[in-house]
Design a protein around this nucleic acid. Sequence first.
DNA 1: CAAATATATTTGCATTGACAAATATACTTG
DNA 2: CAAGTATATTTGTCAATGCAAATATATTTG
Lengths: 152, 152
Amino acid sequence: MNSESLAFATPRESLGVLLGLVRAEIVRAMEAELAAKGLNLSFTQFLILKRLARLGPMSATELARSVELDGGAMTRQLDHLEGKGYLRRCRHEQDRRTLRIELTDAGDALWQELTDCNDRVLSAAQRSLDETEQVQLHDYLERVLHALRDKN
Amino acid sequence: MNSESLAFATPRESLGVLLGLVRAEIVRAMEAELAAKGLNLSFTQFLILKRLARLGPMSATELARSVELDGGAMTRQLDHLEGKGYLRRCRHEQDRRTLRIELTDAGDALWQELTDCNDRVLSAAQRSLDETEQVQLHDYLERVLHALRDKN
DNA sequence: CAAATATATTTGCATTGACAAATATACTTG
DNA sequence: CAAGTATATTTGTCAATGCAAATATATTTG
Protein backbone atom coordinates (compact mmCIF):
# COMPACT_ATOMS: atom_id res chain seq x y z
CA MET A 1 0.00 0.00 0.00
CA ASN A 2 3.02 2.12 -0.10
CA SER A 3 3.99 3.70 -3.37
CA GLU A 4 0.39 3.26 -4.42
CA SER A 5 -1.13 5.23 -1.61
CA LEU A 6 1.66 7.77 -1.63
CA ALA A 7 1.20 8.41 -5.29
CA PHE A 8 -2.42 8.90 -4.61
CA ALA A 9 -2.21 10.95 -1.45
CA THR A 10 0.58 13.17 -2.73
CA PRO A 11 -0.73 15.11 -5.65
CA ARG A 12 2.43 17.18 -5.62
CA GLU A 13 5.46 16.66 -3.48
CA SER A 14 6.76 19.94 -2.15
CA LEU A 15 9.91 21.26 -3.72
CA GLY A 16 11.98 20.96 -0.55
CA VAL A 17 11.16 17.30 -0.09
CA LEU A 18 11.51 16.47 -3.74
CA LEU A 19 14.95 18.04 -3.95
CA GLY A 20 15.98 16.10 -0.88
CA LEU A 21 14.78 12.83 -2.38
CA VAL A 22 16.49 13.38 -5.70
CA ARG A 23 19.71 14.46 -4.10
CA ALA A 24 19.71 11.49 -1.74
CA GLU A 25 19.35 9.13 -4.70
CA ILE A 26 22.22 10.78 -6.52
CA VAL A 27 24.41 10.52 -3.46
CA ARG A 28 23.49 6.88 -3.06
CA ALA A 29 24.20 6.11 -6.69
CA MET A 30 27.53 7.91 -6.66
CA GLU A 31 28.69 6.23 -3.48
CA ALA A 32 27.71 2.88 -4.94
CA GLU A 33 29.83 3.61 -8.01
CA LEU A 34 32.75 4.64 -5.84
CA ALA A 35 32.45 1.56 -3.66
CA ALA A 36 32.26 -0.62 -6.77
CA LYS A 37 35.63 0.78 -7.77
CA GLY A 38 36.98 -0.20 -4.36
CA LEU A 39 37.38 3.44 -3.39
CA ASN A 40 36.60 4.55 0.10
CA LEU A 41 35.35 8.06 -0.67
CA SER A 42 32.30 9.87 0.62
CA PHE A 43 30.13 11.94 -1.67
CA THR A 44 31.47 15.07 0.02
CA GLN A 45 35.02 14.04 -0.67
CA PHE A 46 34.10 13.26 -4.23
CA LEU A 47 32.65 16.74 -4.63
CA ILE A 48 35.76 18.37 -3.21
CA LEU A 49 38.00 16.51 -5.63
CA LYS A 50 35.69 17.38 -8.47
CA ARG A 51 35.77 21.07 -7.62
CA LEU A 52 39.52 21.11 -7.55
CA ALA A 53 39.84 19.10 -10.74
CA ARG A 54 37.41 21.32 -12.58
CA LEU A 55 38.25 24.75 -11.23
CA GLY A 56 41.85 24.36 -10.11
CA PRO A 57 43.44 25.42 -6.82
CA MET A 58 41.49 27.61 -4.46
CA SER A 59 41.27 28.49 -0.79
CA ALA A 60 39.59 26.33 1.83
CA THR A 61 36.86 28.89 2.29
CA GLU A 62 36.04 29.10 -1.39
CA LEU A 63 36.01 25.34 -1.56
CA ALA A 64 33.75 25.12 1.46
CA ARG A 65 31.27 27.61 0.07
CA SER A 66 31.16 25.98 -3.30
CA VAL A 67 30.20 22.60 -1.92
CA GLU A 68 27.98 24.04 0.80
CA LEU A 69 30.10 22.79 3.67
CA ASP A 70 30.98 24.37 6.99
CA GLY A 71 34.56 25.64 7.39
CA GLY A 72 35.32 23.34 10.28
CA ALA A 73 34.01 20.33 8.41
CA MET A 74 36.13 21.34 5.45
CA THR A 75 39.29 21.37 7.57
CA ARG A 76 38.63 17.77 8.55
CA GLN A 77 37.84 16.61 5.03
CA LEU A 78 41.05 18.25 3.87
CA ASP A 79 42.89 16.33 6.58
CA HIS A 80 41.50 13.08 5.20
CA LEU A 81 42.16 13.85 1.59
CA GLU A 82 45.63 15.16 2.30
CA GLY A 83 46.28 12.05 4.38
CA LYS A 84 45.32 9.91 1.41
CA GLY A 85 47.69 11.92 -0.72
CA TYR A 86 45.12 13.37 -3.10
CA LEU A 87 45.72 17.03 -2.32
CA ARG A 88 48.15 19.47 -0.78
CA ARG A 89 47.72 22.54 1.42
CA CYS A 90 50.03 25.33 0.30
CA ARG A 91 50.27 28.71 1.96
CA HIS A 92 49.18 31.60 -0.17
CA GLU A 93 52.18 33.78 -1.00
CA GLN A 94 50.67 37.18 -0.37
CA ASP A 95 48.14 36.34 2.32
CA ARG A 96 49.60 33.83 4.68
CA ARG A 97 46.33 33.24 6.47
CA THR A 98 44.95 31.67 3.37
CA LEU A 99 45.51 28.21 2.00
CA ARG A 100 45.83 27.25 -1.60
CA ILE A 101 44.46 23.76 -1.94
CA GLU A 102 45.71 21.89 -4.96
CA LEU A 103 45.44 18.36 -6.25
CA THR A 104 48.54 16.18 -6.20
CA ASP A 105 49.39 14.00 -9.18
CA ALA A 106 47.66 11.16 -7.37
CA GLY A 107 44.62 13.40 -7.00
CA ASP A 108 44.62 14.19 -10.70
CA ALA A 109 44.96 10.54 -11.54
CA LEU A 110 42.09 9.68 -9.22
CA TRP A 111 39.86 12.21 -10.86
CA GLN A 112 40.59 10.67 -14.26
CA GLU A 113 39.20 7.48 -12.84
CA LEU A 114 36.21 9.17 -11.25
CA THR A 115 35.08 11.30 -14.11
CA ASP A 116 33.24 8.48 -15.81
CA CYS A 117 31.46 7.43 -12.58
CA ASN A 118 30.28 10.96 -12.43
CA ASP A 119 29.09 10.98 -16.03
CA ARG A 120 27.42 7.62 -15.69
CA VAL A 121 25.37 8.62 -12.67
CA LEU A 122 24.36 11.97 -14.07
CA SER A 123 23.32 10.63 -17.40
CA ALA A 124 21.41 7.78 -15.79
CA ALA A 125 19.63 10.32 -13.65
CA GLN A 126 18.66 12.44 -16.62
CA ARG A 127 18.02 9.67 -19.07
CA SER A 128 14.30 10.27 -19.19
CA LEU A 129 14.79 13.93 -20.09
CA ASP A 130 15.64 14.96 -23.60
CA GLU A 131 18.41 17.45 -24.27
CA THR A 132 16.14 20.48 -24.12
CA GLU A 133 14.56 19.35 -20.91
CA GLN A 134 17.92 18.80 -19.27
CA VAL A 135 18.93 22.33 -20.10
CA GLN A 136 15.63 23.64 -18.80
CA LEU A 137 15.90 21.71 -15.57
CA HIS A 138 19.29 23.22 -15.06
CA ASP A 139 18.10 26.67 -15.88
CA TYR A 140 15.14 26.43 -13.53
CA LEU A 141 17.28 25.25 -10.67
CA GLU A 142 19.75 28.06 -11.19
CA ARG A 143 16.92 30.55 -11.20
CA VAL A 144 15.47 29.11 -8.02
CA LEU A 145 18.89 29.31 -6.44
CA HIS A 146 19.29 32.94 -7.37
CA ALA A 147 15.80 33.77 -6.17
CA LEU A 148 16.62 32.23 -2.81
CA ARG A 149 19.96 33.99 -2.52
CA ASP A 150 18.92 37.44 -3.64
CA LYS A 151 16.21 38.10 -1.13
CA ASN A 152 15.05 41.34 -2.71
CA MET B 1 36.77 37.80 -7.19
CA ASN B 2 34.24 35.42 -5.92
CA SER B 3 30.85 35.21 -7.52
CA GLU B 4 32.40 36.82 -10.56
CA SER B 5 35.03 34.21 -11.17
CA LEU B 6 32.70 31.38 -10.18
CA ALA B 7 30.08 32.49 -12.60
CA PHE B 8 32.73 32.59 -15.23
CA ALA B 9 34.53 29.38 -14.42
CA THR B 10 31.35 27.34 -13.98
CA PRO B 11 29.67 27.05 -17.33
CA ARG B 12 27.28 24.50 -15.92
CA GLU B 13 27.04 23.34 -12.36
CA SER B 14 26.55 19.61 -12.16
CA LEU B 15 23.13 18.41 -11.14
CA GLY B 16 24.30 16.86 -7.88
CA VAL B 17 25.91 20.05 -6.66
CA LEU B 18 23.12 22.25 -7.86
CA LEU B 19 20.48 20.21 -6.08
CA GLY B 20 22.53 20.38 -2.93
CA LEU B 21 22.86 24.14 -3.16
CA VAL B 22 19.18 24.72 -3.79
CA ARG B 23 18.13 22.40 -1.05
CA ALA B 24 20.53 23.97 1.43
CA GLU B 25 19.07 27.40 0.67
CA ILE B 26 15.55 26.16 1.19
CA VAL B 27 16.50 24.57 4.48
CA ARG B 28 18.20 27.79 5.58
CA ALA B 29 15.24 29.90 4.58
CA MET B 30 12.76 27.63 6.34
CA GLU B 31 14.80 27.47 9.52
CA ALA B 32 15.09 31.24 9.49
CA GLU B 33 11.31 31.52 9.22
CA LEU B 34 10.87 29.10 12.06
CA ALA B 35 13.39 30.89 14.24
CA ALA B 36 11.70 34.21 13.45
CA LYS B 37 8.52 32.75 14.90
CA GLY B 38 10.43 31.86 18.03
CA LEU B 39 10.08 28.16 17.29
CA ASN B 40 12.91 25.80 17.97
CA LEU B 41 12.30 23.32 15.17
CA SER B 42 14.76 21.76 12.76
CA PHE B 43 13.92 21.36 9.10
CA THR B 44 13.62 17.61 9.64
CA GLN B 45 11.12 18.14 12.41
CA PHE B 46 9.24 20.55 10.23
CA LEU B 47 9.05 17.95 7.47
CA ILE B 48 7.77 15.31 9.84
CA LEU B 49 5.00 17.57 11.09
CA LYS B 50 4.13 18.51 7.56
CA ARG B 51 3.85 14.89 6.49
CA LEU B 52 1.54 14.10 9.35
CA ALA B 53 -0.54 17.20 8.82
CA ARG B 54 -0.92 16.52 5.12
CA LEU B 55 -1.25 12.76 5.03
CA GLY B 56 -2.61 11.93 8.45
CA PRO B 57 -1.41 9.26 10.89
CA MET B 58 1.04 6.66 9.69
CA SER B 59 3.69 4.30 11.02
CA ALA B 60 7.19 5.38 11.98
CA THR B 61 8.64 3.45 9.08
CA GLU B 62 6.38 5.05 6.51
CA LEU B 63 7.16 8.43 7.95
CA ALA B 64 10.88 7.72 7.86
CA ARG B 65 10.82 6.61 4.24
CA SER B 66 8.78 9.56 3.13
CA VAL B 67 11.22 12.11 4.52
CA GLU B 68 14.30 10.08 3.63
CA LEU B 69 15.35 9.50 7.22
CA ASP B 70 16.87 6.47 8.88
CA GLY B 71 14.62 4.51 11.25
CA GLY B 72 16.82 5.09 14.24
CA ALA B 73 17.00 8.80 13.59
CA MET B 74 13.22 8.82 13.28
CA THR B 75 12.81 7.26 16.71
CA ARG B 76 14.78 10.13 18.23
CA GLN B 77 12.96 12.81 16.34
CA LEU B 78 9.71 11.28 17.48
CA ASP B 79 11.04 11.43 21.04
CA HIS B 80 11.65 15.14 20.65
CA LEU B 81 8.37 15.94 19.00
CA GLU B 82 6.42 13.81 21.43
CA GLY B 83 8.29 15.51 24.27
CA LYS B 84 7.20 18.87 22.96
CA GLY B 85 3.66 17.59 22.81
CA TYR B 86 3.16 17.85 19.07
CA LEU B 87 2.48 14.19 18.39
CA ARG B 88 1.50 10.92 19.98
CA ARG B 89 2.67 7.35 19.50
CA CYS B 90 -0.26 4.97 19.50
CA ARG B 91 0.01 1.23 19.09
CA HIS B 92 -1.57 -0.17 15.98
CA GLU B 93 -4.58 -2.27 16.95
CA GLN B 94 -3.98 -5.26 14.70
CA ASP B 95 -0.21 -5.23 14.49
CA ARG B 96 1.24 -4.33 17.84
CA ARG B 97 4.76 -3.99 16.50
CA THR B 98 3.69 -0.98 14.55
CA LEU B 99 3.15 2.55 15.74
CA ARG B 100 0.51 4.89 14.58
CA ILE B 101 1.96 8.36 14.82
CA GLU B 102 -0.61 11.11 15.02
CA LEU B 103 -0.58 14.81 15.65
CA THR B 104 -1.95 16.10 18.93
CA ASP B 105 -4.18 19.14 18.99
CA ALA B 106 -1.07 21.18 19.77
CA GLY B 107 0.57 19.65 16.73
CA ASP B 108 -2.38 20.57 14.55
CA ALA B 109 -2.35 24.08 15.91
CA LEU B 110 1.37 24.35 15.28
CA TRP B 111 0.93 23.29 11.70
CA GLN B 112 -1.68 25.98 11.19
CA GLU B 113 1.00 28.43 12.20
CA LEU B 114 3.66 26.83 10.02
CA THR B 115 1.73 26.43 6.84
CA ASP B 116 2.27 29.99 5.78
CA CYS B 117 6.03 29.85 6.50
CA ASN B 118 6.07 26.93 4.19
CA ASP B 119 4.13 28.70 1.47
CA ARG B 120 6.20 31.84 1.81
CA VAL B 121 9.50 30.06 1.37
CA LEU B 122 8.33 27.94 -1.52
CA SER B 123 6.80 30.77 -3.42
CA ALA B 124 9.83 32.97 -2.83
CA ALA B 125 11.98 30.18 -4.18
CA GLN B 126 9.88 29.80 -7.28
CA ARG B 127 9.05 33.44 -7.82
CA SER B 128 11.19 33.71 -10.94
CA LEU B 129 9.40 30.78 -12.58
CA ASP B 130 6.01 31.20 -14.16
CA GLU B 131 3.24 28.72 -13.49
CA THR B 132 4.13 26.47 -16.42
CA GLU B 133 7.76 26.42 -15.50
CA GLN B 134 7.00 25.50 -11.91
CA VAL B 135 5.00 22.54 -13.09
CA GLN B 136 7.75 21.53 -15.48
CA LEU B 137 10.42 21.77 -12.80
CA HIS B 138 8.35 19.50 -10.65
CA ASP B 139 7.75 17.09 -13.43
CA TYR B 140 11.43 16.92 -14.39
CA LEU B 141 12.46 16.27 -10.83
CA GLU B 142 9.93 13.51 -10.47
CA ARG B 143 11.17 11.91 -13.66
CA VAL B 144 14.77 12.14 -12.50
CA LEU B 145 13.75 10.55 -9.23
CA HIS B 146 12.06 7.68 -10.97
CA ALA B 147 14.97 7.20 -13.34
CA LEU B 148 17.29 6.91 -10.35
CA ARG B 149 15.03 4.52 -8.49
CA ASP B 150 14.12 2.22 -11.33
CA LYS B 151 17.57 1.08 -12.34
CA ASN B 152 16.45 -0.85 -15.38
C1' DC C 1 53.10 52.83 14.46
C1' DA C 2 49.82 50.75 18.00
C1' DA C 3 45.19 49.38 18.72
C1' DA C 4 41.17 47.90 16.94
C1' DT C 5 38.90 45.31 13.53
C1' DA C 6 38.41 41.87 9.93
C1' DT C 7 39.40 37.43 7.66
C1' DA C 8 41.25 32.37 7.16
C1' DT C 9 41.85 28.34 9.33
C1' DT C 10 41.76 25.15 13.17
C1' DT C 11 39.87 23.00 17.28
C1' DG C 12 36.34 21.85 20.97
C1' DC C 13 31.78 20.58 21.73
C1' DA C 14 27.11 19.08 20.96
C1' DT C 15 23.87 17.23 17.68
C1' DT C 16 22.43 14.55 13.85
C1' DG C 17 22.10 10.69 11.23
C1' DA C 18 23.63 6.00 9.32
C1' DC C 19 24.37 1.31 10.36
C1' DA C 20 24.12 -2.67 13.10
C1' DA C 21 22.58 -5.27 17.10
C1' DA C 22 18.79 -5.98 20.33
C1' DT C 23 13.93 -6.53 21.34
C1' DA C 24 9.11 -7.29 20.50
C1' DT C 25 5.61 -8.94 17.75
C1' DA C 26 3.67 -11.20 13.64
C1' DC C 27 3.66 -14.68 10.02
C1' DT C 28 4.84 -19.23 7.86
C1' DT C 29 5.87 -23.86 7.65
C1' DG C 30 6.49 -28.48 8.98
C1' DC D 1 1.30 -25.53 17.72
C1' DA D 2 6.54 -24.94 17.88
C1' DA D 3 10.49 -23.30 15.29
C1' DG D 4 12.10 -20.47 12.14
C1' DT D 5 11.69 -16.30 9.56
C1' DA D 6 10.19 -11.59 8.68
C1' DT D 7 8.98 -6.87 10.15
C1' DA D 8 8.67 -2.58 13.39
C1' DT D 9 10.85 -0.09 16.64
C1' DT D 10 14.50 1.02 19.85
C1' DT D 11 19.21 1.51 21.36
C1' DG D 12 24.40 1.61 20.98
C1' DT D 13 28.10 3.37 18.48
C1' DC D 14 30.58 6.03 15.28
C1' DA D 15 31.47 9.41 11.66
C1' DA D 16 30.13 13.85 9.87
C1' DT D 17 28.56 18.44 10.48
C1' DG D 18 27.38 23.04 12.37
C1' DC D 19 28.52 26.48 15.59
C1' DA D 20 31.42 28.94 18.63
C1' DA D 21 35.88 29.88 20.58
C1' DA D 22 40.84 30.05 19.69
C1' DT D 23 44.74 31.27 16.82
C1' DA D 24 47.25 33.47 13.16
C1' DT D 25 47.66 36.93 9.92
C1' DA D 26 45.97 41.29 7.41
C1' DT D 27 43.95 45.69 7.16
C1' DT D 28 42.25 49.97 8.93
C1' DT D 29 42.13 53.82 11.97
C1' DG D 30 43.50 57.19 15.20
